[in-house]
């Protein structure tokens, strides 16, 4: 049994006029320290699955276990970075990044110093007293990442964290996130639309099929790619090879619907 186990998860959204099956038959095992990417067409249920793993919604069937415990419990040790940064506009950057420890009651001097150091590592300086809207999109994403890391979560869920950024910033952030996670040996799940990003950053790529979302195929990223930084990985021949394979597989998914 893995570090994170998803056991036969099904989910359906109900409204008055419709029932939308969103996920079907999801079984995944993720090891500690692993970096996994979810790839799939829009609306296939990736965000839904992250919300289930984070314990924010209860799946219709099945369960998500982290370290042998149901993830629905509070204090689950999961950090979830939403599809947009959702920094609190009425809080300063400092208040924003310390909100996690403040909420779960672990805020002390050591944690504060640690978090501020992390902000420094993300090349954000002199922003502590600024408000989010005074920052650029890339800076806000980095602040959101620091906020997510501040509680020192065992598992990180990242929902398209780089999708709103320009290409250059995105490449830089990929490197930064990858090296940070490697140093702290974090387990992470990344949702992305970008095949290249999925290959460059992860150990495994899970390809989801269109609604209701199912795991269509799993790709293992070759060992030699994993050791490189995302930027270097993008220039490796093995990267292109895998890119082509996944691309074809994704294309074969499209016309079915």
């Amino acid at each position: 049994m893995g570090f994170l186990t998803l056991n036969d998860i099904h989910h359906t959204y109900f409204t008055k006029t419709s029932a939308t099956p969103a996920l079907r038959n999801i079984n995944i095992d993720i090891k500690e320290g692993e970096f996994v990417s979810f790839l799939g067409p829009s609306g296939c249920g990736k965000t839904t699955l992250l919300s289930i793993i984070a314990g924010l919604i209860q799946p219709a069937r099945g369960c998500a276990m982290l370290d042998g415990k149901n993830t629905g419990k509070t204090d689950s040790g999961i950090g979830y970075m939403l599809q947009q940064d959702y920094l609190f506009p009425w809080k300063t950057i400092e208040e924003n990044i310390l909100i996690g420890p403040k909420i779960n009651g672990t805020l002390n001097h050591a944690i504060k110093t640690e978090t501020l150091a992390l902000l420094d590592k993300m090349e954000l300086r002199n922003v502590l007293t600024s408000y989010p809207k005074q920052l650029s999109g890339g800076m806000r994403q980095r602040v959101a990442l620091v906020r997510t890391l501040a509680t020192n979560p065992k598992l990180l869920l990242l929902d398209e964290p780089f999708s709103a950024l320009d290409y250059q910033t995105k490449l830089k952030l990929e490197n930064l996130v990858s090296s940070t996670f490697k140093t702290f040996n974090k387990t992470a799940i990344l949702v992305t639309h970008d095949i290249g990003e999925a290959i460059a950053m992860s150990n495994r790529v899970l390809l989801f099929s269109q609604r209701p979302g199912k795991i269509h195929k799993i790709f293992d990223v070759p060992e030699n790619l994993r050791l490189l930084s995302p930027f270097e990985a993008r220039h490796h021949p093995a990267y292109n090879e895998l890119f082509q394979v996944i691309w074809k597989e994704l294309e074969s998914l499209e016309p079915e619907e």
Binding site: A54, L56, I78, L82, Y86, I99, G100, I103, N104
Partner: peptide, 12 residues
């Protein structure tokens, strides 16, 4: 926006 609440809920 419910997503603000989601952020807080992930912190318990």
């Amino acid at each position: 926006d419910h997503n603000y609440l989601k952020v807080l809920q992930t912190f318990g």
